[in-house]
Design a protein around this nucleic acid. Sequence first.
DNA 1: TTAGGGTTAG
Length: 623
Amino acid sequence: MAIHMERYLTSLLHSSLQLNQLKQVHTLIITNYPDLAPLFVKRLLGSSAIGYGRKVFDKIPQPDQFLYNSLVCAYSKLNLNEDALAMFSLMHRSGIRVDFFAVPPTIKSCLLLQDVDVGKQVQCLAINYGFDSSVFVQTALMDFYARHGDLVSARKIFDGIFIKDPVCYNCLISVYSKSGDTEAARRLFDDMTERTVVSWNSMISGYAQNGEYHDGLRIFERMLAEKFRPNEITLVSLLSICAKLGDLELGLRIMKYIDDNNLCSNMIVSTAILEMYVKCGAVDDARKEFDRMIRRDVVTWSAMIAGYAQNGRPSEAVELFELMMSENIKPNDVALVSVLSACAQLSLVEAGERIGAYIECQSFDSNVYVASALLDMHSKFGDIDKARQVFNKMQVKDIVSWNSMIVGLAVNGYGEEAISLYEKMKETTMRPNGITFLGLLTACTHAGLVKLGLEFFRSMKSDYGITPEMEHHACIVDIFCRSGRLKEAFEFICRMEVEPNAVIWGTLLNASRTNLNVELAEISLKKLLELEPENSGNYVLLSNIYASEGRWQEALKVRNLMKDKRVKKEVAYSCIAVNNELHNFLVGDTSHPEWNKVSSIVDELAIQLTSAGCDLNWDLERY
DNA sequence: TTAGGGTTAG
């Protein structure tokens, strides 16, 4: 009878009863089954009807340690950590022996409240009661110290555990992995005589999170060899390794393994599959996985939106964001970051401004990722004032925030301000990276600061140990060219430690044409023919140069070379958003419904630009 | 005790 009734009461309390219904049940029990009343209260305190449970508790003259314990556990489980601590302290003060089972949840609440002092007091109390030899209490304490970054204390507790169960090993393995010390984690793992699936998972995810992907795969193979059955968590870690490696083939093999072994999947596994596809560039397959999913949370949605935004398909990112909103799913910071980047890529000013306003009114701009993406979008829209406002309002700034502002100022023509912002950054503890210097070099290009540009180029390597990449070299070439110092640009290219690419020779070519330097134009074009034999513009230009010099034979040779190689022009297009609608313009494509109107306006603009002194011929010839 | 998504340049 009692067991039957206990089950009934438990199921009753798990159903969502209204407060008045709860009171009725309680009254019924008191009047008809007074013996069951304490049991009802005990179950009540462990249920989600904690408010009513507390009221009943307060009316009990001398609650026993079980009742106190139930309340501490319930509060801790419901994340009501202050209440959990208060109840624990009340139990202690009322002279009742502290219940052993109340200690681990109390320590967990201290952890979540980041209250180290109270945590240590609870530990002292546990020592006084002799609970500290319990592996449950010790594991909780270990976790407590580890998450406050006190690995030494955590290890001390671990070493003091007389009979160590797999749980305390697993706990410390994940602690070491999270701190980046996979070697220490591995030593513990190897010491274990009895492992659980959690041990294997902790080790695999530890390797995955620390970029040691092949070690993660090797330990997985051993897991299979030792006949352990992987679970969803194993699969998620493995798929994330495939994503990080960009190894689609391996990802597909893992998916086949899931299929062959009938391993169950869940929403997080599907999200990991989706992400694996995205990072391998298979965006359409990611979308298929997305469409197949029965349940999708905001993380799924965000992963797919980010997938589009990162793979050069921003309009689909925006479309999916709108779809998510229309399904009444509240966007989070990650979805917002991706959609801002998509709006910036597309110059979708209206949509971008609307989302920016939403971010500010929902206070999402306190997130450093969101704020950086927002300021970058404003700067790409050319609205440097708004970009500055967002930057100045930021409480926390990371290197991306600084870089976005420096680059934004540089490309919008505020070179000097970009440089002085860098000086300001140097006063903080922030260290510049390659992108910072790209911004600074761009600033020097636009402000004509040759000497300073060369100084930055030198400083990045000697002061910060950053090896200049192709783009940094291209900036220096550009700086020389724009100030008409073509010879120095050419000498710089010849001295480069890396093989110059088409952008670099293209920059020199451009400058040689405007400066009428036939010799350098010929050199750069010959290099360009080697580097991008598909680009028809290069052949046409070289042949024109020979023709203008009267070197007809050579001109003809280049033209024939182009015919032999069957070079075709690559199709380029531009796009613009008007009233939230995207319009694409392909080269030679006149299918747009308002083509005639558009074309006449372009002609008109060309006339105005030419009369204002702009030379459009070069661009028209090359593209 | 173990699991999924993000911003800057080119």
